[in-house]
Design a protein around this nucleic acid. Structure first.
Lengths: 146, 146
DNA sequence: TCTTGCACTAGAGTTAAGTCTAGGGTTTAT
DNA sequence: ATAAACCCTAGACTTAACTCTAGTGCAAGA
C-alpha cells in the first residue's frame, strides 16, 4: 500500500503545504516519486513521519529534525549519534515542561484569588496597594477610582 | 523604590527591547514616565509584569495578555472575566502539556531502542523492513547498502 | 475528449515575537 | 562642560514555520 500526499496529510494532520515544506527542508529525503514526479509514501515512510511529528510536537527545530533524519538515512552506524541527539532533546523538553509547570502555578494562584468568595475586595486591596505605591513615588495613578 | 527599564530587564530576564515592545503592544499601560519621558517602574508594576511573564511562559499570545491587562486596568469589577480568561488558558496549557508528554513517550521509545545492547541489529531490521517496503511497491531504495 | 480533481515547482506573502538602527535627548561623574 | 552611560521613538529587519499563488501537468470518470 502507498499513499498520496493528500492521504498522508489527512493521516498526520499536517497540511499538504506543510508536507511539501518539510520535504523542501530536507525532512523527507526517503519519500519516492512516481513517473509523473508525484510523491509516493510507503508505510515505512509514515512511521518515520510519525517520529518527525513527535520531534516537532515537542518543539524541536526543523534544522535539528533534519539532522536526525540525516542520521537515519545513513543507516545503523549512526545509532549512537541518534541516541545522543534524542537524549539531549529529551532534557530540553523535560526542562521546558518544568518551567511551564512553575509558571502555571503562578497562574493558578491568580485563579484561586479570583475564585475566592471575597475576590472583589481582595482585588480592591491589590489595586489600593498599587495606587499607594504610585503615589508614594510621586507618579500618576493609572487605575480608575474605585 | 522605583526601577529603570534596565533594572527591570535584569530582574525579569526580558531584554530592554522586549520591554519596550511589550509596552508598544499595550502590555504595560500601568508604567509611568518621568519628566524626561523615561519609564519608571514601581514594585506593583513588577508584580504585574511577573504575571505577564507567567502568561507568556505558558504560551499565551500577546494579544490575549493584552486583554487580561486591560481587564486588570478596569479594576475589581472585571474579576469574573479575568478568572474565565485564566481558566480557559489553563485548560489549553494542561492540554498542551499532555500532548507534549504523549509525544515525548514516542521519543523515549526510540531512545530505548537506541539504548538496547543490540541496538545496531534492531535498527538494521528497521532499515531492512523499510527497504522491503520500497521494493514491494517498485520504488527506489533511498537507504545505503548495509 | 473534456472536465474535475489532484499533483508539481518556484517563489511571494504571512504571522508572531522579537531585535536592532538611526537620530536624538538626559544624567552622572570627572 | 564634556564624556560615558542611560533613555526615548519610529521604523526597518530578522527568524521560524508555515501558507498561499501562479502557472503548469497528470489522471480518472461521464
Amino acid at each position: 500500500m502507498t499513499y498520496s500526499i493528500k492521504e498522508v496529510a489527512e493521516k498526520t494532520n499536517l497540511s499538504i503545504y506543510t508536507l511539501r515544506f518539510y520535504d523542501k527542508q530536507g525532512l523527507l529525503p526517503f519519500v519516492a516519486r512516481n513517473e509523473a514526479g508525484y510523491r509516493v509514501f510507503t508505510e515505512g515512510d509514515l512511521a518515520l513521519l510519525e517520529t518527525i511529528c513527535c520531534l516537532k510536537n515537542t518543539g524541536m527545530k526543523i534544522k535539528d529534525i533534519q539532522k536526525y533524519i540525516a542520521y537515519v538515512m545513513q543507516g545503523p552506524t549512526t545509532v549512537q549519534k541518534r541516541k545522543e541527539l534524542l537524549q539531549h532533546h529529551r532534557q530540553e523538553v523535560v526542562a521546558k515542561q518544568e518551567e511551564i509547570a512553575r509558571n502555571l502555578a503562578g497562574i493558578d494562584y491568580k485563579i484561586e484569588l479570583y475564585d475566592a468568595p471575597n475576590a472583589t475586595s481582595l482585588v480592591a486591596q491589590e489595586v489600593a496597594a498599587a495606587k499607594a505605591d504610585k503615589k508614594a513615588n510621586g507618579l500618576p495613578d493609572p487605575y480608575p477610582s474605585f
